[in-house]
């Protein structure tokens, strides 16, 4: 609020935020993101989707052991909901088998976040796609 409005007799209201509290929490304190140089992180698979020209891009890095996701890191270029979606997904898939992880789709991510504005739903789709891409890459690497 502009400071010159502070002295008006408006009732103090809770701070408005276009996103849910959970989205805000994950955006401001993202979990599992890969800090700095990604080449230092040992991983078994990675997958990238999106394009900076469109406004968002995500990469998922997975450590996989016995077909289970032992650890996950990510990087995201994008808006608050893109960052929060990737952060949420990283929490949801840790410790899951690859098949279980693949079942976590946009709907589950959005629900976990307490909803996303309608025009931001695609951000949760991208997170799911980045994960699927990483798992696909891993599986095709195994087959070789």
């Amino acid at each position: 609020m502009p400071k010159s409005l502070n002295d008006q007799q408006c009732e103090p209201s809770p701070k408005p935020f276009v996103y849910s509290e959970i989205v805000k929490e994950h955006f401001l304190n993202p979990r599992n993101f890969l800090m700095g140089d990604e080449s230092k992180y040992q991983r078994d698979a990675e997958g990238t989707v999106g394009n900076p020209v469109c406004g968002d891009q995500m990469t998922m890095y997975l450590q996989i052991e016995d077909d289970k996701i032992r650890d996950v890191r990510w990087k995201t270029y994008g808006c608050a909901s893109a960052i929060a979606s990737t952060s949420a997904l990283s929490e949801l898939i840790k410790g899951k088998t690859l098949d279980e992880a693949l079942k976590i789709g946009p709907k589950e991510i959005t629900e976990f976040l307490g909803g996303l504005p309608e025009h931001k739903f695609h951000c949760s789709v991208l997170g799911h796609e980045a994960l699927a891409e990483a798992i696909n890459n891993y599986r095709s690497k195994l087959q070789k």
């Binding site: 935020f17 955006f27 401001l28 406004g55 270029y77 994008g78 808006c79 608050a80 893109a82 960052i83």
Partner: peptide, 14 residues
């Protein structure tokens, strides 16, 4: 560079 403006806007708002 490398930053999407909405994320920056909301972090500044915070």
């Amino acid at each position: 560079e490398a930053i999407e403006g909405e994320a920056l806007q909301l972090m500044l708002d915070e």
